[in-house]
Design a protein around this nucleic acid. Structure first.
Length: 986
RNA sequence: GCCGCGGUGGCGGAAUUGGCAGACGCGAUGGACUCAAAAUCCAUUGGCCGCAAGGUCGUGUGGGUUCAACUCCCACCCGCGGCACCA
């Protein structure tokens, strides 16, 4: 074979300058193949393992504990990329480690074979989706085998095999019979130009992936699964799972539980009522109008009473047509139309309030109708301002002054007061008053006098205290603040009602302050950001400070009720229940989670096994007729009416009703591929079973999954769907566990060498096949472990330089074989035992990077020895075996002449007595700074260590003439000598 | 806007969970071997001051707690990911 000489090639064809990366990798090939020839070694051992089936997981092994390692089932896109290598090879290291620990490990693999890309290839390039998929699987299987992962290939599954999807259909029918599957008109993405339904993946920022037209919403009859029935369980059972907290948190947010109340609003001159959902029943006295979503089903009921019906209908039609882009636009302004001619009655105030239809209210959440409280809800406020609706404050921000709390025995005295945030005409600054006799910095503050309005009071106070006289704008904040404190100078408890104003100055023209005033305080300009440092009471209320800064004068926090008749002075949290009772509402819990739409108007998927009969309705396909096989068709484009391409297979569609034997038609939608992957881990436990989806006993042996590794992108969808599926199967008595996965870990992301996500358009895609060819699978595996810890926060750029370092490390291991001598002696016992301990612990906690680092340190130490004992070398090989399975097997069997695989060896034990050194280095700190280090017996007493430290020259230098105040000793680590601070030079 | 994650040398990352910041690897610089290069081996490698001994600063920014802070608390800035009018 010709050596690959880039210099020669470049001289000959300078225009074909080869990349630095290839040169680097190629460097290892030249003159090295005889040394560590990964190609020969890796091929040889792979064949050996597969013939001997050493990774086959026995169903039952009494002497061993079962351990189920699962990686997310890959989609057969055509090529194994670096991400796959990362996703599979690191869990493989973990699986191998568990196996060496004596566990019966199952590490299965399969293909999630249905889905859109196959169909797109069919439509765009005229291929057969089945052939495309199965060809890809064949190709990828070979690539997967080249990784040298310890997959149990006998358990391979393909979700597009009829033997698999037969059970997908069977399970779907069980859900259907339990009323967990139903058909409903649901909105789908519709491309008006292609006249077809689009999957979410085909909608790119509101536009059709294919023709770039704006995507609309269209109502289509679709199948849904009632995942919402399980919302509460899905939420509660999270608590028991040993998953990383952030994953649980994102599921909680996705489920989005919120507790509130449903309250009915009577429509005047009508018997009908409109229920609203609110989490803030305590604000009901401030509900000044009602809003219905455009889809609200009661609107048509009022068409005779509504006087502007045409306008209303026009608005509803318009909002239906609104595209994704318009709906999600950044500065979308709220729009709406009043339903003139009808009014609602606020059940708390009994007042008539207007009703609007507006698309800022969503139909799918709560009751599709809200009571609007503009004083305490940002969205309602925006709408109210635009349409000039009344804003009524009913919650007052409230706090008790912690420094001067009210005293129980003292008299209460209410007081009205004003406060002013005075804004500089040009700069982002406000006025702060510094009091001469008191330590406070405050805003302009003052009491309201008899017969004076708040507005009059604030202007008077600003003039008196600052002298400014020209105001551009005096704006009252939406709310009054309540605060309670003990006023010492008057010996009473104050109950202050403070009204806050924003006063914008026109200019800095200023009258001279009266002598009385200027004796008391000074006027100072400070940055607006100092607002929270300004004393009382605003600074106590972060939401208000933030609002003033952002000019959003709305208060959505808790406080004391005002303007709420008999409920005044109640705490808002406590008032909720009483008000619900008062207005005859009911407590209610709602979730953001929606039912799971599983219909796809697509060809390449699992046919939904339902038959529509005119007489009998939706009839499940009988078990004996399963699977409903996907028919072969030629044209994969969806029909213009939004129906699946399957509808074109007329012979297949028309069937006899299993019930009445009359004329009937098959359902033509196929199932979302998330359904296929919602139970595949169950099938792995018994992949070839023809009578059941899996044998119960076998499932019990393996389930739940002990370790599930995958991508963060599946935290909410796949993970939630499969948990739901498992729970549904549990309730059907088909599985024994309520939760499928005991432990879940998210992997990180391998980026391109430029630090960006790998993508063909950026040209930064790393081809793993080429690197495996040049450097070997063991190098790639070890490099991917070395790159950083295996978790969701890791985003690692692929580095060709970095991988070369790992190859060098493996070559050093390879070279060690020359120095091996018989014997059991270990030169550095402590390093030896520490390495065993650290590598094991690190693999267990998925910190593969530091495990490799420890192996490197050990290898470097061995390389420095003249000879190494068999014990040292064998131990190194066993510890390295999970990372570099081929290399270690070669050294084990071919060089050390062992008769069985290294991968069936036991993980070595370390001697816990030999991991600590007798002599350790102790850092000596003076006032927390390291000034010296010394060697000492780790077990030595504090007295002795102190004595030794003080005798050190470097220490003496620092302590002469100073008093030792304190000495802190951390055993075997640090001695800190605290001196009194040096006397300042007088 | 909300939720989550993160910010440490030229780069990937380490730090026994409050105890010598920068392990290990890469890169870089110098040297050995070589006609030369590659490969390999040896040495140095956070910044600044210094011939040196040594000193000093240093884990996004500002404050705090502590004998001691990358690690804990408060406020903020930046990057990434997800959700986005959820009443």
């Amino acid at each position: 074979m010709q050596n690959y000489n880039h210099q020669k090639i470049e001289k000959k064809w300078p225009h074909k300058k080869l990349s630095a990366d290839r040169q680097k990798e190629a460097g290892f090939l030249r003159g090295k193949q005889k040394e560590y020839d990964h190609k020969v070694i890796e091929r040889k051992w792979r064949r050996y393992w597969e013939n001997k089936k050493i990774y086959k997981a026995a169903d039952k092994n009494r002497s061993k504990q079962n351990f189920y390692t699962l990686v997310e089932i890959p989609y057969p896109s055509g090529n194994l990329h670096v991400g796959h290598w990362y996703a599979f090879s690191v869990p493989d290291i973990f699986a191998r480690y568990k196996r060496m620990w004596g566990m019966n490990v199952m590490f299965p693999i399969g293909f999630d074979a249905f889905g859109l890309p196959a169909e797109n290839a069919a439509i765009k390039r005229g291929l057969n989706p089945k052939k495309w998929t199965y060809d890809n699987i064949k190709y990828m299987e070979n690539q997967l085998r080249s990784m040298g992962a310890s997959f149990d290939w006998d358990r391979k599954i393909i979700t597009a095999d009829p033997e698999y999807y037969r059970w997908t259909q069977w399970m779907f029918l069980h859900l259907f019979k339990k009323n967990l599957a139903y058909q409903k008109e649901t909105q789908a993405n519709w491309c008006p130009s292609c006249k077809t339904v689009l999957a979410n993946e085909q909608v790119v920022s509101g536009r059709c992936e294919r023709c770039d037209s704006e995507v609309e919403k269209k109502n289509i009859l679709q199948w849904n699964l009632k995942i919402t029935d399980y919302a509460e369980q899905l939420l509660n059972d999270l608590d028991e799972l040993q998953w990383p907290e952030p994953i649980k948190e994102s599921q909680r947010n996705w489920i989005g539980k919120s507790e509130g109340a449903e309250i009915k609003f009577q429509i005047s001159n009508s018997k009908s009522q409109i229920p609203v959902f609110t989490t803030r029943p305590d604000t009901i006295f401030g509900a000044t109008y009602l809003v219905l979503s455009p889809e609200h089903e009661k609107i048509p009921n009022y068409n005779h009473q509504i006087t502007n019906w045409d306008e209303v209908i026009r608005y509803i039609e318009q909002s239906k047509k609104k595209t994704e882009i318009e709906r999600t636009a950044e500065n979308r302004e709220k729009t709406g139309v009043e339903l003139k001619g009808i009014k609602a009655i606020n059940p708390a105030t009994k007042e008539e309030i207007p009703i609007f239809v507006a698309d800022y209210v969503l139909s799918g959440y709560g009751t599709g109708a809200i009571m609007a409280v503009p004083a305490h809800d940002e969205r309602d406020l925006e709408f109210a301002k635009k349409y000039n609706l009344p804003i009524k404050q009913v919650i007052a921000p409230f706090f008790i002054d912690k420094d001067n709390p009210p005293k129980e025995e003292k008299k209460w005295s209410p007081r009205k007061a004003v406060q002013a945030v005075i804004k500089h005409p040009e700069k982002d600054e406000i006025v702060q008053i510094h009091w001469k006799k008191m330590p406070w910095k405050t805003l302009v503050i003052g009491g309201v006098e008899e017969g004076e309005s708040f507005e009059e009071a604030v202007i008077r106070e600003v003039r008196e205290e600052t002298g400014f006289k020209n105001f551009r704008k005096v704006e009252k904040l939406g709310w009054e603040i309540r605060s309670q404190f003990y006023a010492e100078h008057k010996d009473i408890n104050r109950d202050a009602h403070v009204q806050v104003f924003i006063v914008e100055l026109e200019d800095l023209e200023q009258d001279k302050l009266s002598e009385e005033e200027s004796e008391k305080h000074t006027v100072n300009w400070v940055p607006t950001s100092d607002l929270e440092k300004t004393f009382w009471p605003i600074s106590e209320l972060p939401e208000i400070v933030a609002n003033i800064k952002n000019r959003k004068y709305v208060f959505s926090g808790n406080g004391k009720l005002i303007n709420s008749s008999e409920f005044n002075d109640l705490d808002s949290e406590k008032a909720k229940d009483e008000i619900i009772k008062f207005v005859g509402g009911t407590k209610k819990t709602t979730y953001k989670l929606r039912d799971w739409g599983v219909s796809r108007q697509r060809y390449w998927g699992v046919p939904i096994p339902i038959i529509h009969c005119e007489k009998c309705g939706q009839v499940p396909v009988p078990d004996k007729d399963l699977p409903v096989k996907l028919p072969e068709i030629k044209d994969y484009l969806p029909r213009n009416d939004g129906k699946s391409p399957l509808a074109k297979a007329e012979k297949w569609v028309s069937v006899k009703c299993p019930n009445c034997k009359g004329k009937a038609e098959r359902e033509t939608d196929t199932l979302d591929t998330f359904v296929d992957s919602s139970w595949y881990f169950l099938r792995y436990t018994d992949p070839k079973n023809k009578k059941e989806f899996a044998d119960k006993k076998k499932m019990e042996d393996w389930m739940p999954v002990d370790f599930y590794s995958g991508g963060a992108e599946h935290n909410t969808m796949h993970l939630l769907y499969s948990r739901f599926w498992q729970k549904a199967l549990y309730d059907l008595g088909l599985v024994k566990d309520k939760e499928p996965y005991k432990m879940r870990m998210n992997r990180g992301l391998i980026l391109g060498p430029d630090g960006n996500k790998m993508s063909k358009s950026k040209g930064n895609v790393v081809d793993p096949d080429e690197i495996v060819r040049n450097l070997g699978a063991d190098t790639v595996r070890t490099y991917l472990s070395f790159i950083g810890p295996f978790n969701e926060t890791g985003h690692y750029p692929w580095s060709t330089d970095g991988i070369v370092g790992v190859r060098r490390f493996l070559e050093r291991v390879w070279k060690l074989r020359e120095k091996v001598t018989e014997g059991e002696n270990v030169k550095d016992e402590i390093l030896f035992n520490r390495t065993i301990k650290k590598v094991g612990e690190d693999i267990q906690s998925l910190k593969m990077n530091t495990a490799v680092s420890a192996l490197m340190i050990f290898t470097n130490a061995l390389a420095k020895q003249n000879t190494i004992s068999k014990k040292e070398f064998e131990t190194l090989l066993i510890l390295l075996a999970p990372f570099a399975p081929h290399l270690t097997e070669e050294l084990w069997q071919a060089v050390l002449k062992k008769k069985s695989s290294i991968h069936q060896e036991k993980w070595p034990k370390f001697n816990p007595k030999k991991i600590g050194r007798n002599m350790t280095t102790i850092a000596i700190q003076i006032n927390g700074k390291v000034r010296a280090v010394m060697e000492a017996e780790g077990q030595e007493s504090e007295e002795k260590i102190k004595e030794m430290a003080l005798s050190q020259e470097a220490v003496q230098k620092w302590i002469v003439g100073k008093e030792i105040k304190k000495v802190i000793y951390v055993k075997g680590k640090v001695l800190n000598i605290v001196l009194t601070p040096a006397p300042t030079f007088a």
